[in-house]
């Protein structure tokens, strides 16, 4: 052994490195039956019981670790499935909603084109979907997804309806008060700024002006109906569609479009006209589709 410890340890290092290198070389050069491979197998056999004991000893810890991992995996899977479930629900809801909208529009259009609906004359029905509903308290407006590019003009009457499997009805809901290329703003008949020339269908001298009921937003008031007119609850109220012979002053709405039914009638000696309350057919707070009666000529 050299006296210089530094030299001694360098010799140890060199010897061990050389031995390791020799082992690698021999291991590669010898076959599977070589001494190193046999030694490897022998060591494996010798340590097998110890390895087994260690495996058994740590198995509970490993199981606990795997359990934690499995729980974590299960949680991730659960979260992923929840998210996917939510996405699929939304997709399904969208599809169902789109399908229902399409069915409603189809039914409304069919009804409007049928003989039951008043003759449209120069008007052509155009289906649209409500995309925005005004949140303002005193403004009753909606925005439709069709605009001037589809032929809509300011002033066009707008109807909507409630379609069931058996029947479809459509009634006036308002008129277009502004339009852009892709959208149209509709002011509803429940807006304080709106007034519609209307009358009770089939009754003589029962024409008046339909206005929002200040006390009840779900109903309308048909004002200026003469006391001599006979009006009963349940009577149908339609647009009167007046127009002067010269074509100067003209109602925005064609004649005969249904609006609603009379729900209350009264009159008193002190009043000049009848008090007629009208309940619109269409729930003006919740309709989702509309049909714009576009005019072929301006």
């Amino acid at each position: 052994m050299p006296r210089n410890p530094r030299a001694y340890r360098l010799i140890v290092l060199t010897a061990l490195l050389a031995l390791s290198f020799a082992l690698v070389t021999v291991y590669f050069r010898e076959g599977a039956d070589g001494s190193l491979h046999r030694t490897q197998r022998w060591l494996g056999d010798t340590f097998a019981p110890a390895s087994g004991a260690v495996q058994r000893a740590v198995q509970p810890v490993r199981d606990a670790g795997e359990w934690v991992g499995d729980v974590e995996d299960a949680r991730r899977e659960r979260d992923r499935l929840r998210a996917e479930n939510e996405r699929l629900r939304r997709q399904l809801a969208d599809i169902q909603s789109d399908g229902q909208l399409a069915a409603e529009l189809q039914a409304e259009l069919s009804y409007i084109r049928s003989d039951e609906f008043p003759a449209l004359g120069d008007y052509a029905p155009l289906a649209a979907v409500v995309i925005v509903r005004s949140p303002a308290l005193f403004s009753q407006k909606v925005l439709l997804d069709q605009g001037t590019s589809a032929g809509i003009q300011v002033g066009d009457p707008v109807v909507s309806g409630v379609a069931t499997d058996e029947t479809a009805t459509a009634a006036l809901i308002g008129r277009v008060t502004a339009a852009s290329r892709g959208t149209a703003e509709v002011t509803l008949i429940s807006d304080a700024a709106m007034a519609v020339a209307a009358g009770v269908a089939g009754r003589q001298a029962a024409d008046g002006i339909l206005q929002p009921n200040a006390g009840d937003r779900s109903t309308q008031v048909l004002d200026f109906v003469a006391k001599v007119a006979t009006v009963n609850p349940g009577d149908l109220v339609v647009t009167s569609g007046f127009g002067s012979a010269e074509g100067g002053v003209q109602s925005y709405f064609p004649q005969g479009i249904p609006i609603g039914v009379v729900s209350f009638v009264s009159q008193s000696d002190t009043e000049s006209y009848k008090t007629i309350q009208v309940t619109p057919w269409v729930d003006l707070r919740s309709f989702r589709t509309a049909v714009v009666l576009t005019r072929s000529t301006a």
């Binding site: 061990l16 031995l19 390791s20 290198f21 020799a22 082992l23 690698v24 070389t25 021999v26 291991y27 590669f28 190193l36 030694t39 490897q40 060591l43 494996g44 340590f47 390895s51």
Partner: peptide, 11 residues
């Protein structure tokens, strides 16, 4: 040896 590696490489 125990891990069935090339003997000498890890050494």
């Amino acid at each position: 040896s125990l891990g069935l590696g090339v003997i000498g490489s890890t050494s």
